[in-house]
Design a protein around this nucleic acid. Sequence first.
DNA 1: CGTCCGAATTGATGCAAATCAAAGGATCAC
DNA 2: GTGATCCTTTGATTTGCATCAATTCGGACG
Lengths: 251, 251
Amino acid sequence: MAQPIRFRQAPSPLKASCQQCSLSNLCLPLAVQDNDLDSLEDIVQQGRMYDRGEHIFDQSTPFRSCFAVKSGSVKTSIITEGGEEQVTGFFMPGELVGLDSMSGEFYACTAKALERTSVCEFPIEKLEELTGKLPDLQHHMYRLMSQEIQNSHQLAMLLSKNTAEERIAALLLSLSSRFQRRRMSPTNFSLPMARNDIANFLGLAVETVSRVFTRFQNQGLIRARGREVELLDVEALQLVTREFSRQNCQH
Amino acid sequence: MAQPIRFRQAPSPLKASCQQCSLSNLCLPLAVQDNDLDSLEDIVQQGRMYDRGEHIFDQSTPFRSCFAVKSGSVKTSIITEGGEEQVTGFFMPGELVGLDSMSGEFYACTAKALERTSVCEFPIEKLEELTGKLPDLQHHMYRLMSQEIQNSHQLAMLLSKNTAEERIAALLLSLSSRFQRRRMSPTNFSLPMARNDIANFLGLAVETVSRVFTRFQNQGLIRARGREVELLDVEALQLVTREFSRQNCQH
DNA sequence: CGTCCGAATTGATGCAAATCAAAGGATCAC
DNA sequence: GTGATCCTTTGATTTGCATCAATTCGGACG
């Protein structure tokens, strides 16, 4: 009697159990009916753990899979021939990494664990096959990719139109709402990335990021010590991000 | 005898004929087998003509369809509450507009004809249904969306790391290769967009764009009068775009 | 517990591009 | 053809942020 139960809980060390995963309402499983969840579990592979700083893939890795962050967090960046880096995104548990790589033989970016991180792996061939059978899952993939395009457009907008303060306020608020959706405090969290990564992502110098943090702190908007951040006045931060558009409103 | 021939050429005023379209090797049809082309033609609708400046859709339009540019060209932009505009892309014949809008009820951007433009319309529900049946078409959709993410990341990179000259050289070269793929001269073309749109897209002031154009002209890289542009020294322009990465290469 | 090295902060200076201002050019309507 | 309007170019000035330089902080590790 003990046997079958153990078997149900861990049918295979490589097979992930979406059923029991606390992220199932943030991740791909949210798109599929309960009775189709098995087929998603059939293709997903439990990935290994990555230490802080380890590469999950880089631009010389043949593209085979998308990865869902299970715990920890991931930074993606493009590295040019000249060694120049552009951070393109930060990914938190439940988010899917690799959607920008589905049009080429190799990954279009490099993915690095920002802290000790585990992932689930979705082999792309099997995933495509499955989305062909499950319209809801296909629809969800389209949504995710579309959202990724929108995010990137938002970033471009931030980079081309907004001041350093506006960019950083926007990032803090984005992180805040993403922590909140994961049932963590929206006002009290630990930044997974270094100042350097923030600077690179937002198109700023590290020194500027540092200065804005202290300015926000002096204004009583946040409290920051190292990577620990507390948002003291969310509304004021929202005002900062909107300042720009309001100032330019003609009325 | 005349009747059936007329009927084959124009079976219905609303139904497009991908078979006879010169863009079929750039557009969605390139992904499907000849014998499946019918089913694609069944769902595509011949859109109407748009005059320069006309909106194809805007951010208050319920999202129903993606559009392939048939002739002319299209500009997409996000318009914020404050009326601020961020140009997110320029689309040429064969390219698909609306992929960024598949995750919401309304279009995520505003699409405007830059010149007299015609489009083909792909109702999204029917398109999703069809991609569920045709794995090649589904794969192609994933590729297109992925490419769009990459393009947007490239833009973000350009905006955050490159000088005005580098940005404009990159845009000119991008347009050049896109004209070339459409069997038009890669060195001698007419810009579909105004200086203002270029400036907005690249995160610059109009004046800066104008200045860089004259600087390039004085250096003998291009010849520009109004929207007519001739690339005189493509290699030098490529050097300008790479200058940045080379300068920062530590070796 | 002290040492070391990368990360973060703070200050001083310089520059690329924005902004302000104004004059030409092109395009359209009438 | 002739204004009117918008688009583009050119020049003068300002400015936000990068860059350079120098501490200070903090965590890893013997």
